[in-house]
Design a protein around this nucleic acid. Structure first.
Length: 1041
RNA sequence: GCCCGGAUGGCGGAAUUGGUAGACGCGCUGGACUUAAAAUCCAGUGACCAUUAGGUUGUGCGGGUUCAAGUCCCGCUCCGGGUACCA
């Protein structure tokens, strides 16, 4: 039988599905292993070849782990709530659930065709009520907990209430927005409403006013990437900053733990670094600046308290509450105006002129607590309310933004740090601030002459002693805004009583998403849920109108896979105890600051409240590189150019002859002769037909036209002007003929050439427009010209200028996208080559972590390999042919070399080199004509993780029953690789000159003697005595002359 | 700007701890088989010089360490990713 991948692949996919081959359950007799792919969002476009890259890698690893005797949990499901489905719903009126369902089914179908070993019984979608019930459940828990900094843990809010009743909030060390201190008595005297308001300041899930991008025209809030230059991407309407009461999650409470625990994880350094930057821990000091003439203080955060002597002004964020308090009467109007400007400018203008400096003096002065100088207080939009305290001390000498601001407002600049070996300079001459990371302090009182680091320590010590401020660690990580004014998401299990939020009883869950007539905001700007009828509790209290964001559903999905059908809990204790955490997580870096931070936070919270046994969800994580598209181009010659060409020919033509001389054509007139005859000048060109009539005469003909004429191409397209001797002599006839010729020529050229495409390497000779062409009609950069004509009616009459008889396309690496015609669909590849080829080729492309363009140029090689592998098991008549003979030493060596290599490669996720190793192995066994069961069966097992279909089939053809999935991975035996000799490269001064076979166990002395007496060595030594001989056993011999 | 990666033939890439640079595959060239095509097989393939034998050179650029550098160190260039009025 031939290698019929279509029959084989569908046969085994059916077998796996019929036999539940990959179904797993808790099985304490086996070690567990949990392999997870990042949750896909099922888009309408379906999978392209980039998506499966990580899935294939994780599938190989899963299958490998099964062969190693592990109980492998390898699930798949869908992150199914989200904006694209909602937008499609807005456009078409179809319920997002309908389109989502359709998309999910298409994904499932495509995934099935690639032969993944998922346990499909565990499949779910985030939009299933059975699933989002638990998302809502976790939200309720988040609402009912607060973060105790004392033991760094989330604890129930009822414990907090108890403390408040007993002793107030004075001793509580919580992550909170509560500033005011109250006693037990205060607390007990407060109304329920007041108490609830205070509790919101402590809850992990809390309501607070936050800034959002509000688009009045669309009546909705927009994400940052839905806005371009201050306008909505959809419709181009203006967007403004607006304060809105929204749910937030107090993820900032976990900043320290999220940062610290990164050290426990086996993630790539670059990914950890992205998270570290995002969390943004900075050590420094909080300092208080007294205000001149007022009983007020300004609190600032700085990482560089040592530069305090260089502070020459202060800057407040325009949004800061302090602005109103400090601004003097005479500056009030201007300050108000500036604040108004800032609000208006918000997104759009700030982006447009990010480099310009603006600000406004408040009229107030602060006192620098270190040198008692009076310094002016400004407001400016370069200081953000959301970071630190919304106020800074400006050190223009050593900070670029402060420097620009100082120059703009003509404020003093003082140098306080000098680099080692340099002298202080006059700030008046500076173009920019001076770097101050290293150096010595100057102009800085008691810290003068200290190094920067020592100066920071001394300053902090001083300000703590004097009560000016204290050491402080600041984080960049902001609390996560958890409300979305959208329809297609999880409803909050929240209702409002007297304007205050209360959560539903858990037995009321799930709170199902209600039906609405259209998926748009209401007329008064409320979210789509505002349209739902009876969207209230049984007692008539209104439900929350926002829904949860995308990350809500994807933050605990890995836990649900452990126990997806459980109705009593998100995950049972038993399942969680057994599966623990994800051992291997594969996905793209694009989730580095979203999903991967949120789910770590979410998991830590669940850990704190005792629901899960591990405080980190993903032990090892691998980032697959992006598969980019490789676009192909054709080059269309510009229409206008041809018009110009025709004109040019016309104007260059020389309709003039010298009649004084007799015109006489010889059979092969030389150019010189003609030039003389016709009085042409240098650079003029003329052409002849076969009968030596002049057919065209031109001065400075464009080279491309010239070439066409020489190639004879134009003769097919143009009626050439053919002039006889007599016609050339008669000026009137001549001119008439010429004029008519060009009139005709112009029409013809414009008519024919506007749809002409020129091959890649000839494109420079023309003025061309590159046009994206569907990569599916291009093979190895050669265009299928017939397919091209049929591809688009516009190109039906296309003409081609070829090179070597072929049309070569240009190419570029871009993102894979429908609009660029570079999308390659895995279904098409599978149709042509089969899933096993697709799987192996995606791995063969290069290292998993690296981005690379999808380029099918090499796929034939991988397919050929599988066919060759198939032939290894068959005779010339294509009958299965396996012998029971004992393998030879050479055959066992090939096998065990491969076992070792494959095992090592899989374990370090170097799948591209495994594919090479398989190729080498099959090449060698083919050369050895090895058909022995004891060699080929272990090889089948090795390959089965990579190419599961062909190996299952061959496994059966070899006479085995059942699936190859659960047999044992072949054991590597070093004894088969033992060599008796080693072929040493012998180099002279580090340059390899010849090779020499020497016994394995040889002393340096013996080796030296043999080498030096070798004729090649004698030649290279050329009579000289070696100065030194390096002998590295089993590596190299180097002779230094 | 800052942080993190990367750069090796015509192309994708290999070289795991400093030890034979270019494995494996594609492409290309030549050949075998065939009426022909497909499929398959064989040989060659970094560049330069040389009839051959062989030699020189070569891992983005410039230095350095070493018996030996794609690999380590110092200084650059370019490309990719992340991030930002972050104090």
């Amino acid at each position: 039988m031939e290698y019929n991948f279509k029959a084989i692949e569908s046969k085994w996919q059916k077998f796996w599905s019929d036999n539940n081959t990959f179904k797993v359950d808790v099985d304490k007799s086996k070690p567990k292993f949990y392999v997870l792919d990042m949750f896909p969002y099922p888009s309408g476009a379906g999978l392209h070849v980039g998506h499966p890259l990580g899935y294939i890698a994780s599938d190989i690893y899963s299958r490998y782990k099964r062969l190693q005797g592990h109980n492998v949990l390898h699930p798949m499901g869908y992150d199914a709530f989200g904006l694209p489905a909602e937008q499609y719903a807005i456009q078409t009126g179809q319920h997002p659930a309908v389109t989502t369902d359709k998309n999910v089914k298409r994904y499932r179908e495509q995934l099935s065709k690639i032969g993944f070993s998922y346990d499909w019984d565990r499949e779910f979608r985030t939009c299933d009520t059975d699933y989002y019930k638990w998302t809502q459940w976790v939200f309720i828990e988040l609402f009912e907990h607060w973060y105790n900094k004392e033991n760094q843990k989330s604890v129930p809010i009822r414990d907090l209430i108890e403390v408040f009743c007993r002793e107030g909030n004075g001793k509580i060390n919580a992550a909170t927005d509560q500033i005011d201190v109250f006693t037990a008595e205060d607390w007990n005297n407060k109304s329920e409403k007041q108490q609830q308001e205070i509790l919101l300041n402590y809850r992990i899930a809390y309501l607070a006013d936050t800034m959002v991008n509000w688009c009045p025209a669309l009546g909705t809030v927009l994400a940052n990437d839905e806005i371009k230059e201050g306008l909505s991407v959809r419709g181009g309407h203006p967007v403004v900053q607006k304060k809105m009461r929204q749910w937030s999650l107090r993820i900032s409470a976990y900043a320290e733990r999220l940062l610290e625990d990164l050290n426990k994880l086996e993630w790539t350094d670059s990914l950890k670094e992205i998270q570290r930057n995002w969390i943004g821990r900075s050590e420094g000091a909080e300092m208080n600046f007294k205000l001149k003439g007022q009983d007020l203080e300004m609190e600032i955060f700085t990482t560089r308290p040592d530069t305090s002597w260089g502070v020459t002004f202060m800057v407040l964020a325009p949004e800061s509450d302090l602005v109103q308090k400090v601004t003097t009467e005479e500056h009030k109007a201007k300050v108000e105006e500036y604040i108004l400007e800032t609000k208006k400018r918000s997104e759009r203008d700030r982006m447009a002129d990010a480099k310009s400096v603006s600000g406004q003096f408040t009229g107030a002065y602060a006192i620098n607590p270190l040198n008692n100088q009076e310094i002016p207080i400004y407001i400016s939009d370069y200081v953000l309310m959301g970071y630190g305290t919304g106020a800074i001390m400006a050190v223009p000498g050593h900070d670029t933004r402060d420097f620009k601001f100082a120059r703009h407002f003509d404020l003093p600049i003082v140098q306080v740090v000098v680099k080692k070996g340099e002298n202080p300079t006059d700030p008046k001459d500076w173009d920019d601030s001076i770097d101050s990371k290293e150096g010595k302090m100057i102009n800085s009182g008691f810290i003068n002459d200290l190094d920067v680091n020592a100066a920071i320590k001394q300053t902090i010590q001083y300000i703590e002693e004097k009560g000016i401020g204290k050491r402080k660690v600041n984080f960049r990580l902001r609390d996560a805004i958890f409300s979305r004014q959208r329809y297609w998401g999880e409803p909050f299990p929240v209702y409002f009583k007297e304007g205050l939020p209360y959560v539903l009883e858990k037995d009321k869950l799930p709170l199902e998403l209600p039906k609405v007539d259209v998926y748009l905001p209401t007329e008064d700007g409320e979210p789509p849920l505002g349209r739902a009828k009876n969207w209230t509790t049984e007692d008539g209290y209104p439900f929350e109108l926002s829904t949860m964001p995308g990350f809500a559903g994807s933050s605990a999905y890995y836990l649900r896979y452990m126990d997806p059908k459980n109705n009593e809990a998100l995950v049972s204790e038993e399942a969680n105890e057994y599966w623990q955490d994800v051992d291997l997580y594969i996905g793209g870096t694009e989730h580095a600051t979203g999903h991967l931070i949120y789910s770590r936070f979410w998991n830590k919270f669940l850990f704190d409240i005792g629901w899960v046994c591990k405080d980190e969800p993903f032990r090892k994580l691998i980032n697959q590189g992006m598969i980019q598209g490789r676009s192909s181009f054709v080059y269309r010659i510009k229409y206008n150019e041809f018009k110009d060409d025709a004109k040019k020919i016309l104007s260059n033509f020389v309709p003039y002859l010298n009649y004084k001389k007799e015109l006489k054509f010889t059979k092969n007139p030389s150019v010189r002769e003609l030039r003389n005859l016709l009085n042409f000048r240098k650079g003029d060109v003329f052409y002849f037909d076969e009968e030596n009539n002049i057919v065209l005469i031109s001065r400075k003909l464009p080279s491309r036209i010239k070439r066409k004429i020489e190639e004879g191409n134009l003769r097919d397209k143009y009626e050439f002007l053919v002039l006889s001797e007599k016609e050339i002599k008669d000026k009137v006839i001549f001119n008439e003929r010429i004029n008519n010729f060009f009139k005709q020529g112009l029409e013809l050229s414009v008519g024919n050439l506007e749809n002409t495409f020129v091959s890649f390497n000839l494109r420079k000779e023309y003025d061309v427009t590159p046009i994206h062409v569907d990569v599916n009609i291009v093979s190895n950069d050669i265009l299928d010209t017939e397919a091209f004509k049929n591809w688009n009616p516009e190109y039906k009459n296309a003409e081609f200028i070829l090179e070597d008889g072929k049309y070569h396309c240009g190419h570029a690496v871009e993102k894979m996208s429908k609009s660029l015609y570079n999308v390659v669909n895995p279904d098409d590849v599978i149709e042509q080559y089969g899933a096993d080829t697709l799987r192996m080729y995606e791995m063969f492309l290069g290292p998993l972590e690296m981005s690379k363009p999808w380029d099918t140029n090499g796929i034939d090689g991988v397919h050929k390999f599988l066919r060759k592998f198939w032939r290894l098991f068959h005779d010339d008549q294509n009958n299965i042919s396996i012998t029971e003979e004992t393998p030879t030493k050479d055959e066992l060596k090939v096998l065990h070399k491969t076992i070792k290599k494959i095992q090592e490669d899989i374990e370090r996720f170097s799948f591209n080199t495994s594919v090479s190793a398989f190729m080498i192995c099959v090449n060698e066994l083919t050369d050895l004509k090895c058909k022995k069961r004891d060699v080929l069966e272990p090889l089948l097992v090795l390959l089965s993780s990579f190419a599961p279909h062909i190996t299952e089939e061959l496994w059966q053809l070899c006479g085995n029953n059942g699936s190859i999935t659960y047999v044992s991975f072949p054991k590597f035996e070093a004894k088969y690789l033992v060599e008796s000799s080693f072929e040493y490269p012998v180099s002279f001064n580090g340059k390899m000159r010849f090779k020499l076979e020497l016994p394995m166990e040889i002393s340096a002395k013996e080796a030296e003697d043999i080498v030096l007496s070798h004729e090649q060595a004698i030649k290279w030594l050329d009579g000289k005595t070696p100065r030194k001989i390096i002998f590295v056993p089993k590596k190299i011999i180097n002779i230094v002359i």
